[in-house]
Structures are given as C-alpha cells and as structure tokens.
Design a protein around this nucleic acid. Structure first.
Lengths: 336, 336
DNA sequence: ACTACCAATTGGAGCGTTCCAACAGATCAG
DNA sequence: CTGATCTGTTGGAACGCTCCAATTGGTAGT
C-alpha cells in the first residue's frame, strides 16, 4: 500500500520474479516463459504500473522522442504541416514533444534548450525566427530538419521548402495575365521567407516591365498584419488594383480591409495569398493562392530526419517542393 | 574530446571540484563560493554542458512539467486557449508538454499515457473525446484541469467552461429578436459540448413557441462539417432563414455552402456561430457569434491546476464563464 | 552417465542527477 | 589556547530503469 507510484520492483515482488524479468516481459522479450509473462502482466495491471520514461531514457541513453518547434499555432497551416510530421514520427515508434516560441527568437531558443535537456534525439523546426548561428549550434547536438525554409546549409540540417521566389513570381504573373499593372505587395515582416517572396515579387514586376509600379508595404504573417498593411496600401493614389499578400492568413485580413473601405474583391481589387491553407478553399473565403503541399512537407521533413538518425554518415539534403497557383475567386480581370 | 555528451562529472573534473558542488552551483545555491561558481560556470560553458532532464527528474522525483492535450490544432480557438495556458504555466516555472489526439479517443488516451510516463505533474485537457471513466482514471494519478467542459466531477479534476446551454439560448434569442422563425441548428457531432448547445437551442425554440420549427442537422466542429450540414439544411422546404451553427469554424463552412447555393448572408440567411474565434472578427468574415473568453479560460484552467498542486487538500472546483453575444455582420432582420 | 547445450532467470553495475551526512578550515568567544 | 560555530566542500546512496555476465534446470546426444 505504498503511497507513491509502483515501480518495477513492486511488480516483481507481486509476481514473484526478479525485476530483470519484469523489465524483459514489459518490453515483449521472447525469452520470457508464457507463465511468467502472464503473472507479470497481471501484477502490473493490478498495481497500475506505468514505466517511468525518465528512468528508462536514462538507462537506455535514448529517449525515442523528437522535439518539434512550431512558429505559430494561430496560423492553421502549421496544423497541416504538423499532421504530416506526427504521422511520420509515430510510424517510427517515436513520440513528438511539441513547443511554440510565439514567433519570438528568445522564447524559441529557450524552448529548444528545454527540448534538448529532455534528450530529444532530433529536432524539427516548422518555421522559426532564430539566427542561423543558433540553429547550427543546435545541429551540433542533434540532427535537425527545417520545414518551410532552406537558408541554413549544414550536413546535420535537412531542409524542406518550396521555392518562395518562384512562387511569388507565379502570383504576380497571374495578376499580370489578368491585366493588372498597379500590383502592390504586402510583405510578411522581417524574416527570410518573407524576404524571398518579396524578392520574387520584384523580379516578376521587373520581368513584366512594371518596375515603376513596384510598391511594398510592410506587413506581418498574421490576419491583423495583413489588415493594417492593406489599409496603408489602399491609401495610395492611385490605389493598387491588385494585392499580392505574403501569406494566406494575412490575405484574409487584407480582404477585410478592402471590403471595409467600400471596395469589392475581386471587383475593385484582386487579392492573391500564399500557402494554400485549407480554410482558404472554402467558398466563403475562396482565396486565390500559391499553394505548398503542406502535409507532405511535414512528412518529408520528418522522414529526412529519420534518414539521418538511422544513417548518420549520409549528409542531410534539401528537398524542394513546387509551389502551385490555385485560382479561386479573389482574383479577376482588371477593370480600369 | 569525449564523443558523447558532457556530464556533471566532466564539468567537475574540468573545474577541479566535486560533482556535488557543480550540482549546487548550477542550481544557484548561495553556499558556493564566488570563485568556485565562476570556475564551474566557465567549465560548463566551455564543454557545452546541458543538464540531463531525465536524470534530474529521476533524482528529484518531479519533472516540473505539465502535460497538455489539445483536441484539434486545426481550429484556431485552441491556440487562443493555449496562449493563456502557456503564460500561466511558464509563470510557475513549469514546462508544457503538448500533444494532440486528433479528436480520436484512442489516440488521445495513448498520448496521455505517454505524458504520464514522462512523469508530468498535472494534466490540462483542452477539450477531449475520452470517456469520463478514462479521465477519472487519469485523475487518480495526477491533478487534472479540463477546459471547455464541465461534465466530469471529481475532487482531482478542475473544470473551466462557459454555460453552453445558456450561450445557445442567447444565440437563438438573438435570431428570434430579428424576426426569424425558421431557425435550424447545425450540431457539432457526438460530444457533450455539442449536446449542450443543441439542448440550449431546443429550450430557446420552445420558449419562443417555435417547437414546430425545430430542425437539427448533424454536423461536426470543422469547416467541412459545417459546409455539408448547411447544404442539407438548405435543401429543406421551406428552407430556414437562419442557422445557429455549433461553432465558428463550422459556421465559416456553412457560409460557404449558403453562398455557393446562390443565397446571400445575411440577406437571405442569417448565420450565428459559437466560440468567438479571433478570425471571425475580421470584416471578411464578420461573423456574429457567442463568444467565450478563450485565453482567460486557458489561464484560469492552468491556475486551478497549480492551486491543487500547491495545496492538495483543497478539492478542485468548477469555474463558470459567461458566454456573450457578439453581434456582427452575418445576422440581420428576417425578410421572409 | 557425462558433457554440451539451451531456455529461463537472476543479481549487480551503471545511466546522470540530487540529497544528505560528514568533514576540513577559518573565525570567534571565553 | 580550546571548543563551538560557520562556510564551503565532499563522497556515497538513491532515484527506476536496462544491460550483461552468470546461474539454474532441463533436455539431448553419445
């Protein structure tokens, strides 16, 4: 009637065997006789025994756990990526330890430090805001996979991303094809993904001889960020007839700003986002966007991590995905 | 140049002191001389030492970690609740270990089992699909806080929720006030929250002498669930002029279905959701809803857990929040 | 009947920490 | 100068598990 949790010793005593045999039985070793196995399992369940992961991971010197950092749980695209990650990690018999840094580098770093203290065997960063140096530092301790970015290159860091520059060009080319010239860009703030998308915008504008029309308003990867930036963008004279917004969730905010100012989407202003979030497919939003295969990217990222875990000699590589235009209802032929 | 991770012994050797003193210094004990402390800290950082959480939690017999289960990361309201939970948990010096069960009871249970193996000191369930018996079983091992539900009662289970029956009534009363009579309800599937909201709907309809008009279509707490159910609801003859949808994300799906069938919101059909998700406030959705104070509920749930952790004698209690009507653009006077 | 082998089982060491009782050396009161 | 007190430091035990080498009983082969 011990007050605290039963241990392997308690189970052993109750089943009338040694602790070693209990350990073997609990881990399905074939060298335990059926009789002992039955007695041990019975004793364990009677006592409500639960193995202590801390002790196990200490003795084992491995945790069978992967640490996952997600940039921002408010944006549903990360849930889509996570779906792929979880599926893959579980299929390898590992657990996921999930943390967020709320888009703040210092918090992210602190959370990763904790993950490493917990002895995670690998790290998956689903977008992040830390410096390359910091990430590389972590990569010296465990294999790392980065999903959504490709800027860090290191033998111990695998990356999976789409080509944001190319994707942004697809977005602008689509608008140009519809006859738009005053195409403004709402950026996603100070981060590499945003920088690439802006770069693609500039390249495509230049290719279309629209250099004079280039107009970038600083926004953020959030609904409110897109909302405020769109207000600013619309205040220009002449106002843009199309907006390429750095990501879908910000595009939703931008639509709100446009409708609020009495204009129609896409009648007066066309909007195209980026990411391909599931919600955007619904008719109430019906958002034209550049889609990335989010769930697949999660899966591939996890898979790359395990490849390295299972074969530490092979260096990590970059996996490039193709961004794809999904034409829906928020873009239309320019009126003007 | 040891291949594996440095331990406290390595640090001790390098600093020329005992492992015990290293342990003390690393935990900011005041009884370490400044000289030793400096030497130890230097040695630790030179070696890239990181304390092993498994060993610490084993020796300490406490993990300083709270396990959090989230129903579904795809619905952004859970991110809002999580914000409150994280803030509170961190302020107590604890870490959060986050898992999802993808709305599946078996997966949820397996994930919680893992959390308990990791020796989490408490459990926060942000909505879940497990049976009362299962949850009560967990509550025998550690204190539990349930956010968003109030159905389980147990001295070791704290609950924080709004009154869903009352909230649903507010929704229906709002529609009735606008002159609607053919008010259909799109439910959220087989779970207690959904059941309560449906119950509130029925009560309010009855109070308004609209018993004959009661019409419930089985949906789900997802955008697609709301979409399909709304299609079914609209097929009725006569079609409803207003829909009370079980939650916001499903309401977004319902709006899509309505617009797709050539009807306008709120011109032809009014829509009211439930939850108060942040996204609904944006003008592009502008969703009328019954709001719950999500972040605050997260915070209060975590706080209730710590109250019990710090004072195990005091039984856990239920905290009731008030649901509140937020009138936005998806409801309007009935035209008939 | 004896060795050889195999299957099942066991105690002990070790994983990296924390806690505790013990200890050395300095400081101080009488 | 002696004992008491305090400050800083130490080795060993313990946490709950896994791994390993060793041990016990059979069973089979000759």
């Amino acid at each position: 009637m011990s007050a605290s949790k039963p241990t392997i010793h308690d189970v052993a005593a109750r089943a009338g065997v040694s602790k070693s045999l209990v350990s073997l039985a609990l881990r399905q070793s074939p060298k335990v006789s059926p009789a002992s196995r039955a007695a041990i399992l019975a004793a364990a369940s009677e006592l409500g025994y639960r193995t202590n992961a801390a002790a196990r991971s200490l003795a084992d010197r491995r945790s069978r756990t992967i640490g996952v950092l997600v940039l921002d749980l408010h944006n549903p695209i990360f849930a889509q990526i996570l779906d792929g990650v979880q599926t893959e990690v579980r299929s390898h018999g590992y657990s996921v330890m999930l943390v967020t840094g709320n888009s703040d580098p210092a918090t992210e770093q602190a959370e990763i430090d904790k993950l490493l203290e917990f002895q995670v065997e690998g790290l998956i960063l689903i977008s992040h805001r830390m410096s390359d140096a910091t990430v590389r530092e972590f990569a010296r301790e465990v294999p790392v996979a980065i999903i959504t970015r490709q800027d860090v290159s290191d033998t111990n860091i695998a990356t999976v991303s789409n080509d944001d520059i190319r994707g942004a060009q697809l977005a602008v080319e689509h608008l140009v094809r519809l006859g738009h010239t005053r195409i403004a860009h709402i950026s996603g703030g100070e981060n590499t993904v945003s920088a690439d998308r802006e770069r693609g915008y500039r390249i495509a504008m230049s290719n279309a001889q629209l250099d004079e029309q280039v107009s970038v308003v600083a926004g953020a990867f959030t609904d409110l960020g897109g909302y405020s930036a769109a207000r600013t963008a619309l205040a220009a004279d002449p106002a843009p007839t199309a907006l390429f917004v750095a990501n879908d969730i910000a595009a939703v905010g931008a639509i709100a700003a446009i409708e609020e100012s009495g204009l129609a989407v896409p009648g007066d202003v066309s909007i195209i986002g980026y990411d391909g979030m599931a919600l955007g497919a619904l008719r109430s939003l019906n958002l034209t966007t550049i889609a990335q295969p989010l769930t697949e990217m999660g899966q591939l990222g996890a898979r790359a991590l395990f490849a390295r875990l299972e074969n530490p000699d092979e260096p990590s590589k970059h996996t490039a995905m193709n961004p794809e235009l999904i034409e829906r209802g928020t873009t239309a032929v320019a009126v003007q």
